[in-house]
């Protein structure tokens, strides 16, 4: 079997890509060590895992996927996923988009760029969404917009708070204006949830940009950010090209936004769950109750 696989020529492009992509699959860390992109020091993968995927030497927060985040935040076995099966279609017949979607599905092991559902955090019942960076950089197309809208509508119906983790490159251009419309749609859902007196906590992670920053990411009642996360409307490269000058160091990082007054607090991963629990308690979100929050 091994020999056969080794010398087998890939039948088509996708198979070839699939094979090379697997090596860098973030869900299965095959390497023993990983080097920190910030301080360049090596750490054991197991040490990183035990340290919330934060570099023990310099505190750099490695990018992690949505399922890993969920495991860090919610009470064990309490997450009930909703609408897992929604998949994007290429309605505009944009060239190459079908292939991109297929690759993203293989690469991320997810159907789309966000996971939604209900869970318990410190025994508080909550609705949540967690965006997935490995699926086309968490870009927002119709399915991402729909799932986020659905979870806000569900939370509104059941009187639940929403906890949302954002990571996104912005609106997904392969879906054209239908992607842009998701900004209005999700904002409308947040507004209705908010008008009913319900609590929305947004946690911005690296990177949160474009159409997601300009919609539900910035609409939280309380907005937390991970240390050094890039949070921007226009990305640094676009700005440099527009104004033709170098940007100052630390520009558009979480610390910069805190200084300018656009995030409430910077919370490292190690204390995120505690902070969320504290905020839920302070917002008088009831504890206990029905475990089964599915539709």
């Amino acid at each position: 079997m091994l020999n056969k696989g080794l010398f087998k020529k890939p039948k088509n492009e996708l198979e070839a890509q699939h094979r090379t992509k697997r090596k860098t699959d973030p869900a299965i860390p095959s390497e023993l060590c990983r080097s920190c992109p910030s301080c360049k020091q090596l750490s054991f993968s197991s040490d990183l895992e035990n340290n919330f995927h934060v570099c023990p030497k310099c505190g750099h927060h490695f990018r992690i996927n949505a399922r890993q985040r969920l495991n860090m935040i919610v009470d064990p076995d309490s997450f009930v996923e909703q609408h897992h099966d929604l998949c994007s279609t290429n309605r505009l017949e944009f060239p190459g988009y079908d292939e991109k979607l297929e690759q993203a599905t293989l690469f991320s092991h997810e159907n789309e760029g966000v996971i939604i559902g209900t869970a318990k955090i410190g025994d508080h019942q909550v609705a949540l969404f967690v965006m997935e960076a490995t699926f086309m950089m968490g870009s927002m197309g119709q399915v991402v917009g729909e799932k986020i809208t659905l979870i806000f509508e569900y939370a509104l119906k059941h009187g639940l708070p929403v906890i949302g983790y954002t990571v996104s490159g912005g609106a997904r251009m392969q879906e054209g204006m239908l992607a842009l419309m998701q900004m209005a749609k999700t904002s409308g859902a947040v507004k209705r949830h908010s008008d009913a007196g319900l609590f929305y906590l947004a946690v911005l992670t690296d990177p949160t940009t474009g159409g997601v920053t300009a919609s539900f990411a910035m609409e939280g009642d309380i907005i937390l950010a991970e240390p050094e996360a890039l949070i921007a409307f226009a990305g640094p490269r676009v700005i440099e090209q527009t104004i033709r000058q170098r940007l100052p160091k630390g520009f558009q990082r979480a610390e910069f936004l805190l200084e300018k007054g656009f995030v409430d607090a910077i919370v490292p991963r190690s204390i995120q769950k505690e902070t969320i629990k504290q905020l839920l308690t302070l917002h008088q979100i009831p504890q206990g109750g029905d475990q089964n929050g599915s539709l």
Binding site: A214, F216, A217, M218, F233, A234, F262
Partner: peptide
């Protein structure tokens, strides 16, 4: 806060 202004 360009993003925040548009979002609002």
């Amino acid at each position: 806060g360009q993003g925040q202004a548009i979002a609002k």
